[in-house]
Design a protein around this nucleic acid. Structure first.
Lengths: 337, 337
DNA sequence: ATGAAAGCGCTAACAG
DNA sequence: CTGTTAGCGCTTTCAT
């Protein structure tokens, strides 16, 4: 077994308290000479304090939980990275749990997180059902719901400025001179996609353009569904000259659909989409994309959680919707097959 | 504070041992009627055992560490997902650490993982420098190095069958009738890219085609570098008719370069690449791609680690190179810009 | 400036 | 079948 504090104690011929004071730099002072002896012993023994014992004694774990539907989605992967980084900076570890969009697993996480005595949790729900994070917070574990909240809830939540993203995307298309702009929506609306839709609608209204329900169609999560949604838009008496999609897979679907119809993008049609899932911006220069600033989201989420853990009232500006960028790509020619 | 075992004890009017036996289903039997009383008390109190105390007592943590260069890379994100899933199934939690390719951070992780008393670690090194994982394993923490090992090392390592991937890719191109096949390599070779290169060479030799050093050029990690590498290949007296790249970013770079030169892919030229970084297969149907089976890799890695933790000799077949697939995409027309 | 000792919440050996 | 008790390795109060 690894060396314990007692080994250090004996080797340096000091008491338990002294070792502790040296390691933790307090709360009481230690004579320089004694400190040197202790440090020496620690080094010789290759001693590392046992965090489990320390956690038990201090009744703290310095750990937060992070619940996420699926790492494989680059959107979430980026979020994980940002949160992990921010948490580490503040001296917290992260226990990672992924639900794979399974509410049953989510329910199990509640017990797990309680048992582990995590100090707080950032939870990206699998669906709009917030029962599990809610249960957790009822057990007095500070919990922040991230981004995909259902519209009505009394839970504390971080939200990206999806509304502004939708607005920016639509403004961009309007400025290019488009009057008929189609929107491909999420199959089942969550708050974030509703925000995007609302931004779209408001930008249109602001320009004095009426929102036509015929120009808003439901998409899905597969390329093919994006293509079909685009075809549906084309069935309009007067088809759109531009399309805005709630994510990048749909946008690529539109690109494919346009190609098959012989419509050239971006010369004859403009496409803008949120670049959430497959980093389409990287491979499809024809696309203009909207990016959420996951780094900022993550940092703010952790900041917010820390405040809750400390029992402080959450600062209002932390909860404000944040971080959205429109990236207009230079058209660099079609990617050949 | 949360209820403790003592609260349960009092409420159910039983001893500490009995509560423990009920919770853990042993090691001694409990009378059904007593058990019911305990369960009742647990429920009423909303009691969840404290894992910290349990871990201290049992001198176990049921936790493994996972060190990874960067989640944002979908390759790693998939690996994380697979490992997390496999570990959870076996009752382990995962502490996630990402180095962001920083060896200094990696060195810090050694202390952290020791302090946390993780039972084992799966480590994907940032560079070919294995000092940190090695140090860790010298401290008697079972450590498995994942995929990107330097060629000579005495550390236990999981490896994907990169060699076979390189071989498959090249065979595929040979079977399409190509004789002059270029290879764009990693800027600095690691074992996995060396394996890919060797597979390429052997496939050529097997077909009686000489390996030309002029057809092997160094790439980078950016599209532009892929394009430049392709241009370099084209400077050959007799340019290649097909290109194999060590990752998908390079492959896309080649597609761009070909497009700018007016070469149509795949009609006039074939491109095959490992689909590691940006899921190019999703957006570039012109590409034929090689996929590592990260799910299998992850599962085997965890399996191997569990054996080490139990002190068993690692089963040979767990360490065998695994999981590589060639995916030949149906050409579905160029993706419009 | 340092030592002694209590106790965090749990498991499991020991003793009925 | 159940109760009592000794720690696991640490932090920190109370002494000195």
């Amino acid at each position: 077994m690894a060396a314990t504090r007692e080994d250090v104690e004996r080797r340096a011929k000091v008491s338990a308290a002294t070792v502790s004071y040296v390691i933790n730099g307090g709360p009481r002072p230690v004579a320089p000479e004694t400190r040197a002896r202790v440090l020496e012993a620690i080094k010789e023994l290759g001693y590392q304090p046992n965090a489990v014992a320390r956690n038990l004694r201090m009744k703290r774990t310095f750990t937060i939980g992070l619940v996420i539907p699926d790492f494989r989605n680059p959107y979430f992967a980026e979020v994980v990275g940002a949160i992990e980084e921010a948490a580490t900076e503040k001296g917290y570890k992260v226990i990672l749990l992924h639900s794979r969009y399974d509410p049953v697993k989510e329910a199990q996480f509640v017990d797990l997180l309680r048992t582990e005595r995590v100090e707080g949790v950032i939870w990206i729900p699998a669906t709009s059902n917030l029962d599990s994070p809610k249960t957790l917070s009822e057990y007095a574990i500070p919990t922040v719901v991230y981004d995909r909240i259902s519209t009505q809830t009394d839970m504390l939540a971080m939200v990206a400025d999806n509304y502004n993203g939708g607005y920016l995307a639509t403004r961009h298309l309007l400025e290019l001179g488009h009057k008929r702009i189609g929107y491909i929506s999420r199959p089942v609306e969550l708050s974030h996609s509703q925000g995007r839709l609302q931004g779209y609608k408001d930008a249109l209204k602001e320009s004095g353009i009426e929102v036509e329900t015929g120009l808003i169609v439901k998409g899905g999560f597969e390329l093919e569904e994006g293509k079909q949604a685009f075809y549906k838009l084309c069935e309009q008496a007067e088809p759109p000259t531009a399309v805005f999609t709630f994510n990048d897979i749909m946008a690529i679907g539109v690109l494919r659909g346009a190609w098959e119809k012989g419509i050239r993008v971006p010369e004859e049609m403009s496409v803008v989409g949120f670049d959430d899932i497959v980093q389409a911006a990287y491979t499809c220069p024809a696309l203009t994309t909207i990016h959420l600033d996951k780094g900022e989201m993550g940092r703010r989420g952790v900041e917010l959680l820390m405040q809750l853990i400390k029992g402080e009232a959450p600062a209002a500006e932390l909860m404000k919707a944040v971080g959205v960028h429109l990236v207009v790509r230079e058209s660099s020619g079609p990617v050949p097959r």
